[in-house]
Design a binder for these strands. Structure first.
Length: 112
DNA sequence: AACATGACCATTA
DNA sequence: GTAATGGCCATGT
């Protein structure tokens, strides 16, 4: 019988993060901090970013995760790619490259 | 092992 | 509005 400690260690945080990201509906975005909270890791927003950075799994809509300002956090070509995908899903960006989280932010309490 | 870096965030000035 | 600070901790050197 494995100890509780071993069991907790066996379930690393990354799969939980991926599971939450997969729940983000199409046409919506969530912040890193929000993902961390929903994954049961409050305050670990940075680890969410790292989890997505080292992401090798398929089927995870990583592009629906942006920072708390509604801005894309990637500076290189990946950022351009992320923005294009989001726009294809119907997410609108303002002139400064920011998303209105009041309109496109993922809110669980809201139906739709 | 120490150290620096990073797809972050909230608070404070 | 911007800038600095502290917290978080996985990865790479």
């Amino acid at each position: 019988m494995p100890t509780a400690m071993a069991a907790a260690r066996a379930d690393s945080a990354y799969p939980r993060i991926y599971r939450v990201v997969r729940r983000i509906p199409r046409g919506r975005v969530a912040s890193y901090g929000q993902i961390a909270i929903l994954a049961g890791l409050p305050g670990h927003a940075r680890q969410v970013g790292y989890a997505l950075h080292t992401l090798s799994e398929a089927g995870v809509p990583w592009h629906r995760v942006v920072n708390a300002k509604g801005e894309i956090s990637l500076g290189d070509d990946s950022g351009v790619r992320q923005r294009a995908i989001l726009q294809r899903e119907g997410v609108r960006f303002d002139a400064r490259g920011r998303i209105d989280l009041g309109r496109f932010g993922w809110e669980l309490a809201r139906r739709g």
